Amino acid sequence: MIIRSATSDDVDAIWELNRQIGQYHFENVPDVFVAPSHLDREFLLAAIMDEHRLFSVAVDEERIVGFISARMDINENIPFVIKRPLCRIGSVVVDEDHRAKGVGKKLMEHCSSWANSNEAYQIRLEVMSFNSKAKSFYESLGFKPQSEIWAK
């Protein structure tokens, strides 16, 4: 398996992976997420083409089996929040048939290297409270809850 930068040629495979996770989120929180649609493809293509964003794919035997996207942020506006580079992971998706085989870990290691090369002091991500498998995965990599989003 290799991890490489995504290209526009990868968008259909990435869209299918994104559909898997999108459907899972929609089924669990339909008042927050919409069902996956063709509109997701253009959003993903724009993210792939954004030169300021990490967008990488995991390829196993020429098949894309996962992807990760992230960006670097620096707080410029809030005076009581630290002003250091921060890596924010937007999405980590592994194909349903390739989970628990090290793909996600390799994608996260790749992102961590990218964050370090951009002098990030921290890597952050958001995980939905219903997604216990993802939470366990992130905890196994040393992530800890830092805040919670509550809704009514």
Rank of each mutant, 00 (worst) to 15 (best):
M1Y: 05
I2G: 10
I2R: 08
I2A: 11
I3W: 07
S5T: 13
S5A: 10
A6Q: 05
S8C: 09
S8N: 05
S8F: 04
D9R: 10
D10A: 01
V11E: 01
A13W: 02
W15Q: 12
R19L: 13
Q23H: 09
Q23F: 05
F26W: 08
E27L: 03
P30R: 09
D31L: 05
D31K: 08
V32Y: 05
A35S: 13
P36T: 12
L39T: 09
D40Y: 03
D40R: 09
F43Y: 14
L44S: 01
L45W: 12
A47V: 04
I48Y: 05
I48G: 14
H52C: 08
L54S: 02
L54V: 03
L54I: 01
S56L: 03
V57N: 00
V57E: 02
V59Y: 03
V59Q: 00
D60G: 12
I64H: 00
I64L: 01
V65H: 00
V65Y: 01
G66V: 00
R71Q: 12
D73R: 06
I74L: 12
N75Q: 15
E76C: 14
N77V: 11
I78E: 02
I78A: 14
I78T: 14
P79C: 07
F80G: 01
F80P: 00
V81Q: 00
I82Y: 07
R84V: 12
P85L: 13
L86S: 11
L86W: 04
C87E: 08
C87T: 08
V94D: 00
D97T: 15
H98V: 03
H98L: 06
A100C: 07
A100Q: 12
K101W: 07
K101R: 09
V103D: 02
G104Y: 07
G104H: 02
K105C: 09
L107H: 05
L107Q: 12
M108P: 14
C111K: 13
C111M: 06
S112C: 07
S112T: 15
W114M: 07
W114P: 11
S117Y: 11
S117C: 09
E119I: 06
E119Y: 08
A120C: 11
I123Q: 09
R124P: 04
L125M: 10
S129A: 13
N131P: 01
A134P: 00
A134I: 06
S140L: 07
S140R: 06
L141K: 08
L141R: 11
F143Y: 15
S147T: 12
E148C: 04
E148H: 10
E148P: 02
I149D: 01
